[in-house]
């Protein structure tokens, strides 16, 4: 903390020689610094601390809770409330679905965003700026709106199922016998195909949700990729696909891996898409947190415990990713 008290408002290098120290300014600097630390600790750190503290407490009658020190809530998350008489993995299953959806959606988003970003960085700067405006607009669009759009698109009364029916695709699927297979996968009802509610719809929407993020994450490494590298490879007789496989992909292994990881962590917290598109039995931990804290069950400490589990899972993946990428580089 001694660094903190050594307040300065100008780069150190200049400080060494330029302007002599003005004592009152230094005092102001220290006050400002302490204030800043205070604000950030309260606003950015305290909420996470509170979640942890409250997760050790317990619920009392009347939808309220009190502080305590027990791991009862965590026990419930991992092995169920009635352990050891009876073991249930209900919440671990929710965690499993959190990871499952997030992983598939993150990989899907990066796999499709990569070729797009590669092509994007080859465009003129103006075109790139236009695309970025478009992507950022889509990215900043609330989860709520995107889910709404896909909901309309995938709903049975309008959208894609209607298109399938009207164009005769449904009939064709029935004729070739694939319809039965779709029904087994939960992608059809007796009369027509359906997308809601299914794992497919959930994962697709989640992938869509983070797709612009994937582009934004891949954009810096791809735009800084030395194009003479690929040109050199081409002069040595490598075709476009060989260049991609032997030069571009290997040199971008780390950014690609990092992007998947960040999107994955982000997707762990997705709420709206899951509630709308996932089947009731396949909901995620984020939904469960919401239900416990603000929904029907109103058990804040239990919700907090699940949030902590979710947070630790996210942190573990981030740390593991860091470790892997450091080993890889």
């Amino acid at each position: 903390m001694s660094d903190v008290t050594q307040a300065s408002v100008v780069p150190r290098r200049q400080q060494s020689a330029a302007a002599g120290p003005a004592v009152p300014a230094r005092d102001h600097g220290r006050i400002l610094r302490q204030l800043l630390w205070g604000v950030i600790l309260v606003l950015c750190v305290a909420p996470f601390m509170l979640v942890f503290v409250i997760s050790l407490g317990h619920k009392i009658e009347g939808a309220s809770w009190e502080l305590g020190f027990s791991f009862e809530n965590y026990r419930r998350v991992f092995v169920g409330a009635n352990w050891p008489e009876e073991i249930t993995y209900l919440y671990l299953q929710k965690l499993y679905y959190s990871l499952y959806y997030a992983l598939i959606a993150a990989v899907l988003a990066v796999v499709t965003a990569f070729p797009f970003t590669y092509l994007l960085t080859g465009l003129s700067r103006r075109a790139q700026a236009a695309w970025l405006v478009f992507l950022l607009s889509s990215l900043s669009l609330s989860e709520v709106f995107i889910v709404m759009g896909w909901d309309v698109l995938l709903s049975n009364r309008s959208g894609l199922p209607m298109v399938f029916k009207e164009t005769g695709l449904t009939q064709w699927l029935k004729d070739v016998g694939w319809f039965g297979q779709l029904r087994e996968w939960g992608l059809a009802n007796p009369r027509n195909i359906k997308f809601k509610t299914s794992v497919l719809a959930t994962v697709l929407t989640m992938a869509y949700l983070v797709w612009p993020y994937a582009v934004i994450l891949l954009y810096p490494p791809l735009s800084r990729l030395d194009r003479t590298l690929t040109e050199a490879a081409r002069t040595m007789g490598a075709g476009p696909w060989t260049v991609m496989r032997s030069v571009v992909l290997p040199s971008l292994r780390l950014p690609i891996f990092g992007s998947v990881l960040l999107l994955f962590v982000f997707l762990l917290g997705v709420y709206v898409a899951v509630t709308v598109f996932a089947e009731p039995a396949k909901q995620t931990m984020a939904v469960s947190v919401y239900e416990a804290v603000r929904g029907n069950t109103l058990n804040a400490p239990f919700g907090a415990a699940q949030a902590v589990v979710l947070l630790i899972t996210a942190a573990l993946f981030l740390v593991a990713g860091q470790w892997l990428s450091r080993r890889g580089s």
Partner: peptide
């Protein structure tokens, strides 16, 4: 940190705060 971690956790924490 709040931007990097799942927002639902931060939201719950802010609710408590």
């Amino acid at each position: 940190m709040p931007f990097a971690l799942p927002p639902i956790v931060f939201g719950v924490g802010l609710g408590f705060l």
